[in-house]
């Protein structure tokens, strides 16, 4: 599903962020990317949905060579990838229902499909009772569940999560992890970047450790 070959990225030529990263993530896999701050986790994730460009190497996502996608066609790649951020990125002036529905609206889905799929996504994260609330009226865990619902509402093949539990306490983090596990069981390929050792200990998925832009080790726990 995701293949990287010798990917190199530097923000300034003297300061590389990723150096010769190569990995293959199969369809339906659940992979953790970990490492200290500045290791290159977020940049790697951003490269996978072409929010950032890379300088060298090849990246294939869902059989698309993403380095060759023109700017005006990038949205087609991003529609196949759900993304969850540490800061949730919810729109404060929209209700929880509208926030989730937004991902379908921008694709031009019809109203009936939007209503049905949004309701299903909120049901999967246990938030139907909060559908009319606004993000700032919810707890951090609920906001992140909303963000996960939004990322999954159009049934993407890949879900990328960048420190999704970074702002949450351990109990809530476990709940959030279980939502990713459920999505993975439903067939979604998941790449989750975290530096939380607690989160890594709770699961038996492969862990790729980055340090100073290089792959330090790959652990297959399970």
């Amino acid at each position: 599903m995701i293949q990287l070959y010798n990917v190199y990225k530097a923000y300034q030529s003297s300061h590389p962020v990723l150096i010769d990263i190569s990995m293959v993530i199969r369809e339906g896999a659940f992979v953790f990317i970990t490492g200290p701050s500045g290791a290159g986790k977020s940049t790697l994730l951003k490269i996978l949905f072409r929010w950032e460009k890379f300088d060298r190497g090849q990246v294939l996502v869902n059989r698309m060579n993403i380095g060759k996608i023109p700017e005006d066609r990038l949205y087609l790649l991003r529609r196949k990838i759900g993304v969850v951020f540490q800061d949730y990125k919810l729109l404060p002036n929209k209700t929880i229902f509208e926030n989730v529905a937004f991902a379908l609206e921008i694709m031009g889905a019809d109203r009936k499909a939007i209503r049905y799929q949004t309701w299903e996504a909120l049901k999967n994260v246990g938030l139907t009772h909060k559908k009319d609330a606004y993000p700032l009226q919810l707890s951090g865990g609920e906001q992140q569940r909303t963000a996960i619902a939004r990322a999954l509402v159009n049934r993407p093949k890949i879900l990328l999560a960048d420190e999704p539990t970074g702002n949450l306490d351990p109990d809530i983090a476990s709940e959030i992890l279980s939502l990713f596990e459920a999505a993975n069981k439903a067939g979604t390929t998941i790449v989750l970047a975290t530096h939380s050792q607690d989160l890594l200990r709770q699961s038996d998925h492969p862990i790729v450790t980055l340090n100073q832009g290089r792959i330090l080790e790959t652990q297959f726990t399970g």
């Binding site: 949905f49 929010w51 005006d72 949205y75 087609l76 790649l77 991003r78 529609r79 196949k80 990838i81 993304v83 990125k89 729109l91 937004f102 991902a103 921008i106 694709m107 031009g108 939004r150 990322a151």
Partner: peptide, 16 residues
Amino acid sequence: REEIELMLLIGANPRF
């Protein structure tokens, strides 16, 4: 801008 950035992140057509 936040809304536009989110639109770009989640796959909105630039024309949209």
